[in-house]
C-alpha cells in the first residue's frame, strides 16, 4: 500500500442507481486507480452520509473532503448559484453547455471564495411540465395546483396563473395521488423515478432549464494534494464530465420512453404555449439579473454572444 494513502468520503444526495451517482462512482474508481491508491475516494450515495442540503456546508467546513451538490439549491445565499435554473434561458443540452462555459469562470471564483474547488459539473435532463389534464396554452393553467419547492418555481406558478403548493420531495408521490397538487416542473427522470404516471397524464417537453450537479473539493484538502495527483484528479474529472453529459442525454430519452410506457402522453408543448412560456422566461431572466448583479449580467451576455 502507498505510504500516504488517504481516504476521501464523498457524500452524494441521489440514489445509487441514479446516473449522477454512477458517474461519481466511476470518477472515484478512476482517481483511486490513477493515484495508485494514494487517494481512495469512497462514494456514499442516497444521502447516506449527509443529505443534499448539508453537503456544500460539509465540504466547506472540511467535514468531508469532497462531495456532489445541486448548487442551484443555494440561490438564497447567492443568486449566482441559480444561473443554471433560470427558466427558458438555456433550453437544450447544447445551450446548457454554452451557458456553463459562460458561467464557469465566475462560478469557480465564487466557489473559491467559499473554500471550494470545483472539479466537474453534469447537467440533469431538461425540466418539463407535468400535468394531470391536457394543457395547450398558459390560459389553461389558470388555478391548477402546482408543486413548487423554491422561489423560482413559485414565481413560475404565479406568472402562469397557477397556485403554488409547497410539497417536499419525499411527499411528491402521495401529494399527486391524493390530488394535493396536479402539476409540477421537473425532469423526465424525476417523474420516471417517482412513477408519477399513476396520477399524472401529460408531460410537455418544454426544456425549461437544465440544473446541474457539481463535484467540489475542500480547497485546503486540494492544496495538500501533490501536483501529480491533482493532475490525475483533473483528468478523471474531465472524463467524468464527458461521461456524465452523455449519460444525461441517454437517460433523457430512456426516461421519456419510460413515461410513455407508463401511459403518459409525452411530447412538445403547443407552439402557442411555447411562445407564452418564452415570454415568461424573459421576465424571469430579468428578475434573476436584478438579484445576480454584474456577474449575472456578464454570464447572460457571454451566453447570448455564443448563440
Amino acid at each position: 500500500a502507498p505510504a500516504t494513502a488517504e481516504k476521501w468520503d464523498m457524500p452524494m444526495a441521489y440514489s445509487a442507481s441514479n446516473f449522477h451517482s454512477a458517474t461519481g462512482a466511476e470518477f472515484a474508481k478512476c482517481v483511486t486507480t490513477g493515484t495508485g491508491g494514494e487517494i481512495e475516494i469512497v462514494t456514499h450515495p442516497s444521502g447516506s452520509l449527509f443529505p443534499g442540503a448539508q453537503i456544500k456546508r460539509a465540504i466547506q467546513t472540511g467535514q468531508v473532503p469532497i462531495g456532489e451538490r445541486l448548487l442551484s439549491g443555494h440561490q438564497n445565499e447567492n443568486a449566482l448559484f441559480g444561473f443554471d435554473s433560470v427558466p427558458f434561458l438555456a433550453t437544450s443540452f447544447d445551450d446548457s453547455a454554452k451557458l456553463w462555459e459562460a458561467a464557469k469562470e465566475p462560478m469557480t471564483e465564487l466557489l473559491a471564495s467559499q473554500n471550494l474547488t470545483l472539479l466537474y459539473s453534469v447537467p440533469w435532463p431538461p425540466q418539463g411540465l407535468y400535468f394531470k389534464n391536457e394543457v395547450t396554452s398558459v390560459a389553461d393553467m389558470e388555478g391548477i395546483k402546482f408543486r413548487s419547492y423554491n422561489n423560482a418555481t413559485s414565481r413560475l406558478a404565479e406568472l402562469t396563473g397557477m397556485l403554488p403548493v409547497t410539497i417536499e420531495a419525499a411527499e411528491i408521490s402521495q401529494a399527486f395521488a391524493t390530488g394535493v397538487a396536479d402539476a409540477m416542473v421537473s425532469s423526465g427522470s424525476t417523474g420516471y423515478d417517482r412513477k408519477v404516471w399513476e396520477s399524472l397524464n401529460y408531460f410537455y417537453e418544454v426544456d425549461a432549464w437544465l440544473p446541474r450537479n457539481y463535484v467540489m473539493v475542500n480547497s485546503q484538502t486540494w492544496e495538500g494534494v501533490s501536483e501529480a495527483n491533482q493532475n490525475v484528479i483533473r483528468g478523471c474529472a474531465e472524463l467524468a464530465e464527458y461521461a456524465g453529459n452523455w449519460r444525461s442525454k441517454e437517460y433523457t430519452s430512456f426516461t421519456l420512453q419510460g413515461l410513455r410506457d407508463g401511459g403518459m402522453t409525452v411530447g412538445p408543448a403547443s407552439e402557442q404555449m411555447v411562445n407564452e412560456l418564452k415570454e415568461i422566461g424573459v421576465t424571469m431572466t430579468d428578475e434573476w439579473l436584478e438579484s445576480a448583479g454584474e456577474q449575472g449580467a456578464a454570464i447572460v451576455e457571454a451566453f447570448k454572444a455564443m448563440q
Binding site: 440514489s15 441514479n18 420531495a169 408521490s173 402521495q174 395521488a177 423515478d193 417517482r194 396520477s199
Partner: peptide, 18 residues
C-alpha cells in the same frame, strides 16, 4: 401511511403509492 416505506421507496426508486 408509513415512514419506512417512504424512505425505502425513495432510496430504490420504487412507487411509494404501490
Amino acid at each position: 401511511p408509513s415512514l419506512t416505506l417512504i424512505v425505502y421507496g425513495v432510496t430504490i426508486n420504487e412507487s411509494i403509492s404501490k
